[in-house]
């Protein structure tokens, strides 16, 4: 990883971004990186998800959308995106890359390497 020196990741590559309470329930915050924004979502069940902050439709910032269940509605044209897979809800097609994320003792840790499988990373 290019920015390894500057980024405070632990040995296995996890970056601590903040606490669960830093994100409002049914909301999202952005992690700003040189490779673009990552949206970190919190749903009503306190599940945390991380996706590239770019809607597969026309690049809308998903972090600004309305979160419901395990979905977010894009703020620009209301596509719905599955938070757990990054896939658009059918019949729309496309995906936002998903980033591994873990929660331990209320701390959110993120990997800056997106999962494979989504063409637009």
């Amino acid at each position: 990883m290019n920015h390894a020196e500057k980024i405070m990741t632990d040995a296995s590559g996890w970056l601590e971004v903040g606490r669960i309470e830093d994100i409002p329930p049914l909301g999202a915050r952005v992690v700003r990186t040189p490779d673009g924004d990552i949206a970190v979502f919190r749903n009503a069940e306190d599940e945390i998800f991380a996706l590239r902050d770019k809607c597969p439709h026309k690049g809308g910032p998903l972090s600004q959308g309305i979160v419901h269940g395990r979905r977010v509605a894009c703020p620009l044209h209301d596509w719905k995106i599955h938070l757990d897979s990054g896939e658009a809800v059918a019949p729309d097609e496309g995906c936002a890359a998903r980033y591994p994320v873990r929660v331990e003792d209320g701390f959110i840790r993120l990997s800056l390497t997106p999962d494979e499988g989504c063409a637009d990373r």
């Binding site: 971004v17 915050r29 992690v31 700003r32």
Partner: peptide, 11 residues
């Protein structure tokens, strides 16, 4: 403030 600031900035 949370609405207007990133949770984390990585450079």
């Amino acid at each position: 403030a949370h609405e207007f600031t990133p949770i984390k900035q990585v450079s």
